[in-house]
């Protein structure tokens, strides 16, 4: 089975600590991502991505690496594939200070090429990262699901 990889980068005028917090605190993720990211963020712990509106769990996985505020690696699967480890993809967040900004790199790999998940994440990450940037810089997120209801 072909696996594919995507790399997304955004520069945010903030601190690494704030970016790490914004990725791992449900009360923050719900504001710009419309989902709560829930976990204790310890290596080996489960994490889940819960739709704020419906309380449905959309993504599940495990914390693979955690080095706040520089790096977080999690596995990523739809709840239906929770037991099929070979279907889990992997997301690494790398957070580096670059002058007065933070470079956040999201590397999503081990993805099944051509899968529904690939379509979902390639559509999703640019929106989520733009919204995160806006949220941290201005306090206001973007409407990350704008346009989705049109389809």
């Amino acid at each position: 089975m072909d696996k594919t990889k995507f790399v997304y980068v955004t520069y945010i005028r903030t601190t690494p600590e704030k970016v790490f917090e914004a990725l791992t605190k449900g009360e923050l993720t719900r504001q710009y991502w419309m989902h709560d990211n829930v976990s204790d963020w310890k290596v080996g712990s489960p994490w889940k991505h819960v739709d704020k509106a419906s309380a449905q769990v959309r993504i599940v996985g495990e914390v693979l690496e955690s080095a706040p505020p520089r790096r977080l690696v999690i596995s990523w699967a739809s709840p239906a594939d929770a037991a099929s480890k070979h279907k889990h993809s992997r997301v690494a967040f790398d957070i580096e200070r670059v002058e007065d900004m933070v470079r956040l790199t999201v590397t999503h790999d081990e993805l099944e090429a051509g899968s529904e998940m690939e379509r979902g994440i390639t559509n999703g990450w640019p929106r989520v990262l733009s919204s995160l940037k806006s949220f941290l810089e201005t306090g206001k997120p973007l409407n990350v699901f704008a346009g989705k209801e049109k389809r």
């Binding site: 990889k5 790399v7 997304y8 980068v9 520069y11 640019p126 929106r127 990262l129």
Partner: peptide
């Protein structure tokens, strides 16, 4: 920031980064 890079051994790989386009 339209292209992001990542190393695979000694090979530099180029990835499309559409985040600025989305902005």
């Amino acid at each position: 920031n339209l292209v992001a890079t990542s190393w695979r051994g000694r090979e530099k790989l180029h990835y499309l980064n559409p985040v600025p386009l989305y902005e």
